[in-house]
Amino acid sequence: MNTPTLLSSCARAATAEEARYRIDYPNSRARSSRIVALDDEAAAIMRRIEDDVWGDAHFLTFRARNPAPGIEALSIDATLARPDGGETRLSAELAGADVVVMIASSGAGIDAAAAVGNACFVRNIMTAGLIVSRDRTDPDVERAVGALRPYAAVLVIAADEEFVPAMLHALRA
């Protein structure tokens, strides 16, 4: 079993000519993405790209955490704003979500990151954190990183907001 199964089979299979015979079909269904802005500047960045063409992406802005009755420190849900200004609940948005991308520009969204991140964690939903800031050494950015790190499977610190749509398109949001 140490010999190739078919003489030169990889050599032929990897040619441009053979690439023509790759089956052309949609190999994935639309991904259900939730993009959550955690602070005002992040919300402004998000608003500038909401009208692009997206798959099943919901653009949402964090409004407030909803603590458990009588236990202020324990979030059980959160209120989010839709682009049209209407409100929705985090728990409802996470139902059926494949990935949640949290966008922050400062450390102002620490509570928001915890509320969204925890909710994703208990539901086993993939999370990504994206911090947009020109100055990585800004203490505010460090706070944002610290806030998101426990909850984001991947954390990106981007110098320009152009990366936001680039990343979301790459992920088929």
Partner: peptide
């Protein structure tokens, strides 16, 4: 094996590909 120039319109990247 991806071919001489991979067709990236077909790929499905995930968050960890950032």
């Amino acid at each position: 094996s991806m071919g001489p120039i991979v067709d990236r319109t077909k790929e499905n990247l995930v968050s960890t590909d950032n």
